[in-house]
Amino acid sequence: TFELKGKVGKVVKIAEDHYLVEVEGDKWIAYSDEKLSLGDRVMVVDVDGLKLKVKRIP
């Protein structure tokens, strides 16, 4: 999972307290300090167990 840091993915689902992002064909639970929208491109900035911390990228 640490090899996911720096990888780019996209938001595929928005849940009440987390996001579902697809990175390299796999779906992961993710969270972010900013509000994300469906389809946003994101970069993995940290890995916390099986959850990814992501940030939006242009």
Rank of each mutant, 00 (worst) to 15 (best):
K13W: 05
G9I: 01
E22W: 02
H18I: 07
D17V: 13
K51I: 09
I29M: 07
Y19N: 12
T1V: 06
I14E: 12
H18P: 02
K5G: 06
K13Q: 06
I29N: 08
G25K: 08
S32G: 08
E3H: 03
G9A: 09
V23G: 01
L38T: 12
E22Y: 02
L52A: 03
L4S: 02
I57S: 10
S32V: 12
K7Q: 03
L20D: 12
S32N: 15
I14W: 13
K55M: 15
R56T: 14
V21A: 13
W28A: 02
E34V: 08
V44H: 01
V12Y: 10
V11T: 14
G6Q: 01
M43W: 04
G6A: 01
T1G: 15
D17L: 12
L50Q: 09
G49D: 07
V47R: 07
V54L: 03
L52N: 02
I14S: 11
V21I: 05
A15W: 09
L38D: 13
E3I: 01
V11M: 11
M43D: 11
K51P: 04
K10M: 12
A30E: 00
E3F: 11
K10F: 12
L38N: 04
L38P: 15
W28V: 03
G39W: 07
K27H: 06
K7F: 02
G25H: 09
F2Y: 05
S37F: 03
V8T: 13
P58Q: 11
V12S: 11
K35W: 03
E3K: 01
T1R: 15
S37K: 14
D26A: 15
E22Q: 14
L36M: 15
D48V: 04
A15Q: 05
L20C: 05
K5Q: 07
I29S: 12
T1N: 15
V8Y: 05
K53F: 09
S37Y: 09
W28S: 02
R41F: 12
E34F: 09
K35S: 11
I57H: 07
I14Q: 13
G39V: 15
D48K: 07
G39I: 15
R56M: 14
D40V: 10
E24F: 05
I29Y: 11
V8I: 11
K35H: 05
D26P: 15
V21R: 00
H18E: 15
L20S: 11
V12M: 13
I57G: 14
M43P: 01
K10P: 13
W28H: 07
K27F: 10
K10N: 15
I57T: 15
V8F: 07
F2P: 14
K10H: 10
K55W: 06
F2K: 15
D48T: 11
D26S: 12
K13D: 08
K53S: 13
G49L: 12
G49Y: 11
K27E: 04
K7A: 02
V42F: 08
T1K: 15
G49N: 15
E22V: 06
R56L: 09
D48W: 06
K55Q: 14
L52P: 03
Y31P: 03
K51E: 06
I57M: 15
V21L: 07
V45Q: 13
V54E: 00
E24Q: 06
K10V: 09
D48Q: 05
D26H: 14
P58M: 10
K27C: 03
M43L: 11
L50W: 13
S32C: 04
L20T: 07
S37W: 10
V12R: 10
R56H: 09
D33V: 10
K10Q: 06
L52E: 00
I29F: 08
V21W: 01
R56D: 06
S32H: 12
K53E: 13
K13R: 05
E16T: 10
G39K: 07
P58C: 04
D48N: 14
I14Y: 09
Y31K: 14
V47W: 03
K35P: 08
L36Q: 13
K51T: 08
H18G: 06
D40C: 03
G49V: 08
D26G: 07
V54S: 01
K13T: 10
K55N: 10
S32D: 13
E16S: 11
K53D: 14
D33H: 13
K35C: 05
Y19E: 06
L52R: 01
V45N: 14
L4G: 03
K5W: 09
W28F: 11
E24H: 04
Y31Q: 06
A15E: 12
I29G: 08
V44Y: 02
S32M: 15
D46P: 01
I29L: 05
H18K: 09
V42H: 01
D46V: 04
E24K: 09
V8Q: 13
K51S: 08
D48A: 09
W28E: 03
E22D: 09
L4D: 03
V11Y: 01
L52F: 03
E34Q: 10
E16I: 07
K51N: 07
E16D: 04
M43C: 04
E22L: 03
D17F: 10
K27I: 06
